[in-house]
């Protein structure tokens, strides 16, 4: 379920963090569900276990997962709190995009028209990425 994009410039441990956060926010990984062990995920993704350890450590620090020694790591936070965070990040990104559009002299009406058009497309279908 957790994947990494080898062409992404982001460090792998940050990709894992984002991945787990997204999966938790969407409810795909509900609260108290177990994450793969460090060893299994390292073998599956063919990457360094220390990288995964670092990602899990950071997720724990952020309060998104909790670890029971000898049993593994589990999703902690309720998805709502994560969702709020995601929405906040989305608006930050949107702000940047709109500033980009402004520097290209795209009129606001055109942007709004496109927004409506895309909104009416409905939810993302399976196989498409966010």
């Amino acid at each position: 379920m957790i994947t990494i994009d080898y062409r992404d410039r982001k460090p792998i441990y940050l990709q894992i963090i984002d991945n787990v956060e997204t999966l938790a926010a969407k409810g795909i990984l509900p609260a108290d569900s177990q994450l793969p062990t460090v060893r299994n995920l390292a073998v599956e993704l063919a990457i360094n276990p220390n990288t995964i350890q670092r990602a899990y450590g950071e997720l724990e620090k952020r309060g998104i997962i909790y670890t029971i020694p000898g049993r593994g790591s589990f999703i902690a936070k309720t998805p709502q709190e994560l969702m709020d965070k995601k929405i906040h990040l989305f608006y930050e990104e949107l702000k940047n995009k709109i500033q980009d559009a402004r520097s290209m002299n795209i009129p606001l009406e055109d942007i709004l028209a496109r927004c409506r058009e895309y909104f009416d497309l409905g939810p993302i279908k399976e196989g498409e990425t966010i």
Partner: peptide, 25 residues
């Protein structure tokens, strides 16, 4: 990866394939 996780193996890898080193190092 399995050996690193299970018994703390320390590999030292010389390579020109930097793309590959990024995954494992």
């Amino acid at each position: 990866a399995a050996e690193i996780a299970e018994r703390g193996l320390t590999p030292i890898i010389a390579s020109h394939n930097l793309r590959e080193l990024e995954d494992i190092c």
